[in-house]
Design a protein around this nucleic acid. Structure first.
Lengths: 150, 150
DNA sequence: ACGTTATAGTTACATTTGAAACCATTAGCA
DNA sequence: TGCTAATGGTTTCAAATGTAACTATAACGT
């Protein structure tokens, strides 16, 4: 194999580069979880995220869903179209503002949620199980800090 | 705002869910960096990753690039097509195995690399600067562990 | 040497995603 | 009130991506 050397150019070491590593790790984990339900429930990751926030916050508008999922409104619109079509989400119109929708999981939606959520949690535990107590603690703290709004 | 409550369903708290948080963080950081060069250099993130590994390892084949970037071979093929077209990468054929290509950054490619790499590194530093020494240490250790192959 | 299998890489097609344009409705304000 | 701007949401079109099929070359086993 060739030598990793080119002194006068200071090449980037991709495999030590934080953004790259985070990207690989994140994709690996998220894809692993998605594989658990995508095929079996015909449910995309974006759709699942929408369902997850609707499980916690009932009656949100599409815009509010977008905020809470960090997805853009087009993605949310599309996810909702499929979810409503599949009978997993009920969509009403807001009284007094006909632009807004009022979203909720349907019975069927709750059923899916109650099966997928434990799977997702189990996967999270598997990942965390690779770290000891102390590392888990620091990870939480680091994420809080990096994702804070200073 | 509505109350986050639905006791008999144990909804997932997305904003505390590790895979979700990692995904948001990773996308925010990577996109921030990409914004630095995408428009200005007409260079996609995948193309940049290919250039970065070719800066470190000269004469790789496309398959080897795929391995080192964790991209699939189709993505690499497409990135290379554009990079060669743009005159940023030289592609030769391997002596003794006409299937393999032998890839290197061109003069022009090095020029781009030498401008983009410092920008990327600066961004990484900005992120890390939000953590203190100890946190940086733990982050590195945690990533090593989570990305290891046990 | 010859037929089979495997590998490197590209192409074709379908699906996903993103950006901008686009309705419909509401808010702001003269 | 009536006009303009802003907002919620969908649609449209182009670019990005994934999967499978394909071509060309090389490796393997007999």
């Amino acid at each position: 194999m060739r030598e990793p050397k080119h002194p006068d150019h200071a090449p980037l070491e991709l495999e030590r580069f934080l953004p790259y590593r985070l990207s690989i790790l994140s994709n690996t984990i998220s894809q692993g979880i998605a594989d658990d339900y995508q095929k079996h429930y015909d449910l995309s990751m974006t759709e699942w995220r929408v369902m997850a926030v609707l499980a916690r916050f009932q009656g949100l508008s599409a815009r509010e869903v977008a905020e809470r999922t960090a997805m853009d409104k087009v993605a949310v619109s599309r996810a909702l179209a499929r979810l409503v079509e599949a009978g997993r989400v009920n969509r009403d119109t807001h009284d007094g503002d006909k632009r807004r929708s009022v979203l909720d999981l349907s019975e069927e939606g709750w059923k899916v949620h109650d099966e997928v959520a434990p799977m997702a949690r189990a996967r999270e535990r598997e990942v965390l199980a690779r770290l000891d107590e102390e590392e888990q603690h620091w990870l939480g703290r680091i994420l809080d800090k990096l994702m804070g709004t200073p």
